[in-house]
Amino acid sequence: MLTQQLVNGIVVGSVYALIALGYTLVYGILQLINFAHGEIYMMGAYVGIAVLGVLAAMGLTQQSLALSILLVFLVPMVYCAAYGVTLERVAYRPLRQAPRLSPLISAIGMSIFLQNYVQVAQGARDKAFPNLLSLGSFEVMGAHVSGLQVFILAAALAMMAGLQLFIHRTRLGRAMRATAQDRTMAALVGVDVNRVIAVTFAIGSVLAAVAGVMVGMYYGLVNHYIGFVAGIKAFTAAVLGGIGNVTGALVGGFLLALLESFWAGYVSAVYKDVFAFLVLVVVLIFRPEGILGGSTEVDRA
């Protein structure tokens, strides 16, 4: 029972962590909660379904499994990057100098728009995510572990490692960190801030797309509503780890999912979603800078 909760928690945690990264990256640079981020994740899952539909129609799923899997991830990644960049361009960039309430309202409006666009275009009912991988399963210390779970964890870890490399090893990554530190300063030393922001949205959205496809594979069902709850939880994870902090998002994602999994297993399954909220409130009261956060941002007078 205990190890089983642990396994479930780790799988869900990799999803939370991937989404939380998007919140944290954007928050680090724009100090904006991108409320529509959860919808990008949801749309990633839907694009995955669309890709699978096309592949199946072309008979490709039988012929080459490896290629199919690649495309099922790659196409949603590209698409979500495009969604993220467009979102920033349309809903946030015009408001960069506006009072801080405006981008928040614009963000929530965008979230509603996207969620309901998907409902209108794809219907309100659950959509099946066709089963692509049947990898069997095995037992570890009394816990049932499926090959799919291992695959999800591996894919998530690979994405996170890639992100770390990107941030620390590339010019753009350095520009991102510089912009997060001090946007005006970065602009002064020649960083193209608009480009950096666009890239940040693209990266966050790519990670969300991967999370969306993974969740689709894992549960086999998707609806237009999944982005909402996942969004709140991933945000909680980001705050728990220390918002703006990349490692914090990972730690927060896994930690929240594990705690939640134990809570659902031992305390109350019905109130599972309530738990994340309690975590959020407790963290905000006692340690708003999160587990790994440095000092809370101080206001420059």
Partner: peptide, 24 residues
């Protein structure tokens, strides 16, 4: 809980609270 924090946190806490009330 959000008094000391930036206004955005209030948004997310109230959002969560709305969901909780409905779940309860």
């Amino acid at each position: 809980p959000v008094l000391r924090l930036r206004g955005d946190y209030l948004a997310i806490v109230t959002l969560g609270f709305g969901e909780i009330i409905r779940i309860v």
